[in-house]
């Protein structure tokens, strides 16, 4: 394969994006995450196949490598089209720092299109991570311009764990969790999750459903169950102290 005039060998079953990354070529992405696989929706990672069975622009995150392909990742056509993709997303989410930064990199100051006031670019990372965890607390509804990400029946989620993976992956900061008193609240999903109290200091600290989930998956160290981070450290500390003191008495 030839990428940006450089001959390369790529692993079979990898994508153009992976092959390019392996060469140190940076292709901007929004909806892609290594752990979740490709989605192909934002179209920011476009590259051009200049020689192959089907030449043209393709999303590098979904397109598989092929013997003999000639690919360019930042020629004029690619940049021009990528710019419009980002400009369209900037018009949708003019206040997103991430999109603005990407736009700046591509030389876009202001979008030429009608601006909206959205914070979500519908990249689906939250939907996919929630599915990966096996919870399916959020998903896409409607279609076209009405498409959005929401909870079942647009009501407070009955299954959300409060794990915050969605917020962690969201590129635009559209999802925010906040712990208030005994609840973890997430406005975007209109949902509150009860926090468990620390069995030692009785401070609310951990989402109850998440605890259950981790228990079920056997992902918790038994002695840590029910302890907040501070108390866990304290307990660890005191255990260490006792070990040390035993050693010193020997």
């Amino acid at each position: 394969m030839i990428v940006n005039n450089q001959e390369i060998e790529a692993k079979e079953d990898s994508t153009l994006l992976q092959a390019a990354s392996a060469m140190g070529i940076v292709i901007p992405t929004l909806c892609f995450h290594e752990a979740l696989g490709p989605h192909g929706s934002c179209r920011v990672c476009l590259v051009e196949i200049v020689n192959g069975a089907r030449p043209g622009l393709v999303a590098s995150c979904t397109y598989p490598v092929e013997e003999g392909l000639v690919v360019e990742t930042n020629n004029t056509k690619v940049l021009k089209t990528r710019r419009i993709m980002v400009e369209l997303l900037l018009a949708r989410c003019p206040d997103s720092t991430k999109i603005r930064g990407l736009a700046n990199d591509l030389g876009i100051a202001e979008p030429r299109f009608d601006k909206e006031n959205e914070s979500c670019i519908l990249c689906g990372l939250c939907v996919r991570v929630c599915r990966e965890i096996g919870i399916n607390s959020v998903g896409f509804i409607q279609r076209g311009t009405n498409r959005e990400v929401t909870t079942p029946f647009q009501k407070p989620s009955e299954v959300c764990l409060g794990c915050q993976a969605c917020a962690f992956l969201c590129p635009t900061g559209a999802i925010k969790f906040e712990d208030v008193a005994e609840e973890r609240k997430v406005e975007k999903w209109k949902t509150s999750i009860k926090l468990q109290r620390c069995s030692s200091c009785s401070r609310p600290f951990f989402p109850e459903p998440l605890q259950l989930y981790l228990k079920e998956k056997e992902l918790l160290v038994p002695e840590n169950i029910g302890l907040c981070e501070v108390c866990r450290r304290k307990s660890l500390g005191s255990r260490l102290a006792s070990i040390l003191s035993r050693k010193s008495t020997v």
Binding site: G40, S41, C42, R92, L122, R143, G144
Partner: peptide, 14 residues
């Protein structure tokens, strides 16, 4: 606009 699934940026936003 009515019939686009809204998955990709160019079709939905463009």
């Amino acid at each position: 606009v009515d019939e686009s699934c809204g998955l990709c940026t160019p079709c939905r936003e463009g």
